[in-house]
Design a protein around this nucleic acid. Structure first.
Lengths: 191, 191
DNA sequence: TTGCGAAATCCTAACGGTTAGGCCTATCTT
DNA sequence: AAGATAGGCCTAACCGTTAGGATTTCGCAA
């Protein structure tokens, strides 16, 4: 995936990164709403159209790692050792993701997101996509054999756990508590 | 609540309704994206600013009953007979709401929503607000005495049930199945 | 009834995210 | 080396949304 085979791809990746870095820096310094796309483009020394060639929207500039997040979630399910029970694996990964997003350095970004309705809304719809990807991974696991509905519900519950924990006073304890609920819910769907 | 005491309030409500009706009619006839706010305003014979005086955004025109939905949910909790268990009451109300939104006449609207990313995203963020309101209602119930986390998680799970059911092949069965999971999750949080 | 304050509506102009269309140039392929 | 393609640029516009301020309409009390 990360093969910088040609110069073209390397340059493209560099441009993308420069835009994302510039945007985040400006957003944190002056506030998300106070910085326009035109500002970001100027500071990154690219055209406005180039920004949108790399990012689908202004909000997407803030959630650059979107893809990683989704991959980590689904891989926690698909790449786990055979016969390892689902819920603990999911629990562990969500816990790790929550730690990542409540880490020291992430606080200003988190504050910025919570301070902007547009960013909150975007994050939520992102989470929904992640839940759908996770539901697909669950449905594809031959060891689980649960209904599509059970998979979809469990996927959403797991995402709920993440979302609640990121905003909770004690994130890790929140993940644990919600996953106790998810475990019971999951077991109630046993065939 | 619905007391049309004065002419002013009646006229305001009428204007609001005329805008909402006009908007929905145009959206269904020509497509959500193909109709601009300026079109809606012109057809409803009001100024653009008046549209935004009644609705916070273009998407909000489609979800006119937003408030009702939230009230029905929270009241299913707060207004239930004393000592009636929570989960069945919630289950019943969500079932009713799902029936409402999968009813015969709602199909074209549903199709329109699913066809527009902006509307899907808006609906999702609306649901989130409803979940928060429901969480508050749960936390306020003296008979329940669960942690704030358990209340928030259960509220989101219930909203998940609604969202999943609205898009499922068999909506009612989906509500039942997800509520079996929610019941187990809720009971796992008993003090 | 009249007159006043508040609420609802209007108009205009703009702002800011986003996109279309067309062009240019660096890179890749053969 | 030549053509094909992708990344980037510029300009101009579209559309949702808002600010600012004028104007009308209604409710209420003198």
């Amino acid at each position: 995936m990360t093969e910088p085979s040609g110069r073209r791809e390397r340059k493209k990746a560099a441009t993308r990164q420069k835009i994302a870095d510039t945007a985040l820096r400006l957003f944190l310094k002056r506030g998300y709403d106070a910085v326009g796309i035109r500002d970001v483009a100027a500071e990154a020394d690219v055209a406005v159209t180039t920004v949108f060639a790399h990012f689908a929207s202004k909000e997407a500039l803030v959630f650059e790692r979107d893809q990683d997040f989704e991959q980590r979630l689904t891989r926690a399910v698909t790449d786990r050792p055979p016969l390892e029970p689902l819920i603990p694996a999911l629990h562990r990964e969500v816990q790790a993701l929550v730690r990542h997003c409540t880490a020291e350095g992430s606080a200003p970004v988190r504050r910025m997101i919570e301070g902007s309705p547009a960013l909150r809304e975007y994050e939520e719809s992102m989470s929904l996509r992640h839940a759908q990807a996770l539901a697909v991974a669950l449905a594809a696991d031959p060891h689980l054999s649960r209904s599509a509905t059970a998979c979809r519900a469990t996927a959403r519950f797991a995402i709920d756990a993440y979302a609640l924990a990121c905003r909770a006073d004690d994130p890790e304890a929140t993940v644990d508590e919600v996953f106790r609920m998810i475990k019971a819910a999951w077991e109630a769907t046993a065939p």
